[in-house]
Amino acid sequence: MQYEAPATIDAAVGLLSKAQGLARVLAGGTDLLVQLKSGTLEPDLVIDIKRIPEMTKLVAENGGFRIGAAVPCAVLGENAAVRKLWPGVVEAANLIGSTQIQGRATVVGNLCNASPAADSVPAMMAANAIATVAGPNGKREVPVGDIATAPGKTSLAKGEIVTSVFLPSRPAHSGDAYLRFIPRTEMDIAVVGVGVSLTLGDDGVCKAARVALGAVAARALLAEDAAKAIVGTKLDEKALAKLAEAASAACRPIDDKRGTKEFRIKVAGVLARRAAEKALERARGK
């Protein structure tokens, strides 16, 4: 295994493009090193992106925030401005693993590892976050939901690398939230995860909403019917019940060591309702 720590995005793209054999990008390494240890992955080249200055930056941009691919989740959690604008995304990012993992893991890494249970991904999808991809043919922008295609698989072409994720600005009276279910209180992989983002009108009626589900299908998915169930309502009991039902209906889960299909379907609805209520509170400024 060869290790490289380039100083620029171009250099990283160059290394990736020219790589013979298996190449992997190292950001926080919290997934990659586990794969190395177990022997499930034996890359020929590992490209550490933490020496690329723009990858390590978290900056305000057009009323939103750009999160560099090498920014650890802990740094995101320590940023009061990001927490204020996108509390749901930050809480999702801060649920990934322990304090120790937080010190290394990045949301872009979480995205590119392409686990269907990645905590930050449903939250970022609800937030309509956009990933910037650099490659041999220049830059392109992709909705975060289009990066993962299946467990462990991404839409990135050879030589391409996600350099940052952009969290957009948002109108007044907006709120987001992410909730996940795990058997313990910490340290587990999500059995179900739900991100909800919504915006209220001055009259308190929900004008726009996005609901995303994790760990209930081969990749995180947008539950459009669930969002429709609350748009145009004040999130009354009836609307929330419809949201829960639609969230459950959107699930296409499997039985595995972490939970049953039946459990995931039921709990997806429960968490969708709870996350919507939390997002609503935030939108109301409570």
Binding site: T185, E186, M187
Partner: peptide, 15 residues
């Protein structure tokens, strides 16, 4: 299927 502390879930401090 769960030969690790990730999925063999012993209690953690916050539990």
């Amino acid at each position: 299927q769960n030969a690790g502390f990730l999925d063999y879930r012993i209690p953690v401090a916050s539990d």
